[in-house]
Design a protein around this nucleic acid. Structure first.
Lengths: 341, 341
DNA sequence: CTGAAAGCGCTTACAG
DNA sequence: CTGAAAGCGCTTACAG
């Protein structure tokens, strides 16, 4: 039978209260007593039942997540993942509050951060817009001792405790490698389609993509970046215009969202003009496009992983526990039509 | 404040015991009483605290995992993942026992299965060797009412409750698509390197790979499959021999383990003779080879995901709960040098 | 069919 | 510095 605090107490010849003090490294125990308890713990191989401990503590961890109210599949998926995670997290007495904020809007985000802080949550996670006013709000909250995690897109500067998202430079490089190899020696122009250069994840993908293309695929030239604001309608218009103007495009990298518009534009192109296409985020749209061959590969970040990682980190910070960085690394998934989940 | 069983009891005007009976759908409650409780539950928005319930139940779930004692990185990783999962699972009163069994050995596996069953575990997970004697042992255990899950490699026939592993046909197809596109129109032979055709995962990868190659990449011909028994020494010898015999090999698909041997053999090849290489499982060896360019892409199954899925499924089966198949699907990861975690 | 009481493994005032 | 007792939210014999 697994040993309990009672076993430790009788073995060490002390009370439960003392065992608890030693276990939780609280002060007010003589060195001798502490030793006896520590010894009993290691002799019996005691490990604390965290669930029982949480139950007894009655402690709750109110966490706030600030998410852009963008109507694209990725953000919808993030919301869903958050709701699911909330349900599971309840077991560990974590209560999650979701706050909406307009997309790509630095002042609104800064205000939302400050508002969230007034509720004194045990931690805040937010999708960063990389702007000074946001950094300022973050600094204030950090200074107030509230753990802060950026989600999906990071904030420049140091005023956050952790970033729960993919390595966007690596994503850009991966896209370049795949696109370059899939192009198979063809020469021509490459279109890069972003959401907004205001968010750091898009900027980083873009820069890394460009540098690998320049280094490894000399026959492929990048056109000026198109900014579609992750909005399907805008994206469709931009892409359609570009392809009607130019006939030398052999590949396209869509590094933001709003791929519904991209797919609609691609679908109207004659077969022989279709470029090699790499896009981000596995959604219903990109999945269908992979299967029909309109998109060749999709890079994906698992919103569920990101959300769960953010929760774990915020809880650890709230408890003053260390974070195992390696364990919190978020993977970049690659999907072809063949390995769709 | 979150409502508890006490709140439900007083609201419905019944005792805790009755609330518990209704909550757990146990018999011996009048329809009227049941109704009152159900109503209180929905009015108060009660959700059961699973951790507290488990604590009170004192129920434990002894689970047995049977893993081949193969000395390759993947199986070592699986072991590690299992130990990690054990630690976390302890919170949910799951106790995991690990049993070693010789690799690719059907009689030994059948014996291990029967032995495991004598301990009356709440469930058994095992890496299947796809042979009749194993199927027979599985059938017996299933008949005895012990939930059974295959891990990594599946068992033909129906005598298991669940398979926790990737879709190996999809993996074979993915490998073919990548290899074909990376070859970029070159013509020649393709070497296929397997562990053993006795395990179903290898057979399925191989078949699917072959069919996509035949359908989509006419210029690339498959050579007869090499069986390296997932053993680095054997693999090295086979590959070295093949390349010294033939000079028309343009690509290689390593669908099993033992890649240390493969990499050693490839490394001795002159640069211009190096084939396009797709391998399985991200290990130290394949990671280094990706970075140095000896391997072009690695397909990976996350042993941690597989183990955790197996645990979840076994627990659900033990509790008589349904399994959400979509949630238990294991992804096929693709790694290039650019998106290494 | 229903309920009072004890207990799961831990923590927390409170008293000494 | 140390301990006895009550309690966290649920479940389980046992008695009626």
């Amino acid at each position: 039978m697994k040993p309990t605090v009672h076993d430790i107490a009788s073995r060490a010849g002390v009370s439960l209260a003392t065992v608890d003090r030693v276990l939780n490294r609280r002060p007010g125990v003589s060195a001798r007593t502490r030793e006896k308890v520590d010894q009993a713990v290691s002799e019996l191989g005691f490990v604390r039942d965290v669930a029982a401990a949480n139950l007894a503590k009655g402690r709750v961890y109110p966490l706030t997540f600030i998410i852009p109210s963008n109507d694209n599949s990725f953000m919808r998926g993030l919301r869903l993942a958050l709701e699911e995670a909330s349900a599971r997290a309840a077991v560990e007495r974590i209560a999650i509050r979701l706050v909406d904020v307009p997309a790509f809007d630095a002042p609104a985000l800064a205000a939302a951060l400050r508002e969230a802080a007034t509720h004194e949550p045990a931690g805040i996670a937010f999708v960063a817009v990389d702007a000074p006013e946001v950094a300022e709000a973050a600094a204030e909250i950090s200074a107030a001792g509230i753990p802060l995690v950026t989600l999906v897109s990071d904030l420049s500067g140091t005023d956050r405790d952790h970033y729960a998202g993919i390595d966007n430079a690596a994503a850009g490089r991966t896209a370049a490698s795949l696109l370059g190899r899939f192009a198979g020696g063809r020469q021509g122009k490459v279109c890069v389609l972003a959401g907004s250069m205001l968010v750091r994840d898009h900027r980083e993908r873009c820069d890394a993509f460009a540098s690998v293309m320049a280094a490894d695929f000399a026959g492929l030239d990048l056109l000026p970046v198109l900014e579609g604001r992750d909005d399907p309608v805008t994206v469709e218009r931009l892409v359609a215009e570009l392809f009607s103007r130019r006939h030398d495009i052999v590949a396209l990298y869509s590094l933001g969202a709003g791929n519904r518009g991209l797919v609609r534009a691609l679908d109207r192109l004659p077969r022989e003009r279709r470029p090699v296409v790499i896009a981000h985020e596995l959604t219903e749209t990109t999945r269908d496009a992979l299967q029909s061959g309109l998109i060749d590969a999709v890079l994906n970040q698992d919103a569920g992983h990101e959300v769960r990682s953010a929760i774990r980190v915020l809880k650890a910070k709230a408890d003053g526990l260390p974070v195992v960085a390696a364990q919190e690394r978020i993977r970049i998934d690659i999907f072809l039509k063949d390995n769709l989940p």
